[in-house]
Design a protein around this nucleic acid. Structure first.
Lengths: 211, 211
DNA sequence: GTAACGCTGTTACTGTTTTCACAACACTCA
DNA sequence: TGAGTGTTGTGAAAACAGTAACAGCGTTAC
């Protein structure tokens, strides 16, 4: 994976876009880089460079046109179309994510969920149909899903990832607390909750349980 | 925040530690950097460098002693003591995180949760006592909690973060989809779910809803 | 005994990401 | 008109992260 655009930039663009949407509602027509920067808590130079990356150009006098920029970022990120997402692991986290996306982020649609637990399969949970694991090779290509979220225990994560990749998945957002070994052409983002908390706790300084 | 140790290294150390625990159970006494690297899906040089950062020294002939290294990382990360964590927002995500940590990661203890919803406050949910927001200034210092997790909607995130910081919180793991403006001495880690998914979807190549 | 091997610890390097700094330009206001 | 202000776009520099390379040294083989 050798992205022409840095992954961090993509993440920030997603944020800018959401911020711009709010300003669009308010009827603001243009914004300067330092205003966007202030909202996003980054430097103005960072904003300008990120926008340069997608080739969007503002005007020195007016700044950036809110609606044109919002549209440009949207086009770049492909947000003009609803994206189908697959979920593996309809546990607590899987349910929370599905509920969140379904109710708050219409751009992403949980098109299919998979779980090993027969009490969960064959039903609609949190607005998403839950299939058995063995359905992965059928559903993923049929639905044309390329992106998956892994929200399951450590022990089965690698196996499920392999199955997803075999079914054609090209990007995995991994919430399982294990590193995954994947082909180089599959994009992987690890969001290990324990590691995140460990990091924050570490930099929070010395905590203590006793006393 | 000017960490002597890179944040990425801390995250990897957390991972190494978990991997080592598994080997400890199996009775393995020593491992080479390339073995650890392989499990963690990083390069051997990276492993050696990370261990150098915490001052742990292996032996060229035996590699690293599994139990001594596990203990060293544990000491460095402060994992020898249980850490108390505060949670703000006992929604779906908050519940999932609490359940996960309570059942799987005993090193972190959800010591207190806070929520605005009066139907949730005053009760124990997912093994964690839920207090009203107004209790933050009382509970946080009383419990000596320095680390907090934010799992709530965008609109109230900044206000809750401010309250936490005023109560003495020094590190925040933010799952709310907004950037937070915090004093420089408070460590902040953003885990914006939408931005993560946007990134993965982007690098998954061209997805489509229609056809 | 000693040569060869393989690993660690560390330094030098490479590549990427972020910040800095400034030329170029539009607009304002006298 | 023309100086002054404030912004963008971008080259250059700095900071950072990760990789490669290698000296040093037990260990092993013979």
């Amino acid at each position: 994976m050798k992205p022409a655009i840095p992954a961090n930039t993509v993440e920030r663009l997603s944020l800018y876009r959401r911020l711009l949407e709010a300003w669009l509602e308010k009827g603001t027509t243009s914004l300067y880089s330092h205003q966007i920067a202030s909202m996003a808590c980054v430097t103005p130079a960072q904003v300008r460079r990120d926008l340069m990356a997608i080739g969007y150009t503002g005007s020195p006098s007016k700044g950036y046109s809110v609606d044109a920029l919002e549209e440009s970022i949207g086009l770049f990120l492909g947000s003009d179309r609803v994206r189908k997402i697959a979920l593996v692991g309809m546990g607590n986290l899987g349910r929370a994510l599905t509920t969140y996306f379904t109710s708050r982020v219409p751009r992403f649609r949980m098109a299919a969920a998979f779980d090993t637990d027969p009490r969960k399969t064959g039903r609609v949970i949190a607005g998403c149909m839950v299939y058995g694991i063995e359905e992965i090779p059928r559903i993923i290509p049929a639905e044309g899903i390329r992106t998956a979220v892994l929200a399951l225990p450590a022990d089965s994560a690698q196996e499920m990832a392999d199955r997803l990749v075999n079914a054609g998945i090209k990007g995995i957002l991994n919430y399982a607390p294990v590193p995954l070994r994947l082909p180089a052409d599959v994009f992987l983002e690890n969001r290990d909750v324990t590691a995140s908390l460990e990091k924050v706790a570490f930099f929070s300084g010395q905590p203590r349980e006793g006393s």
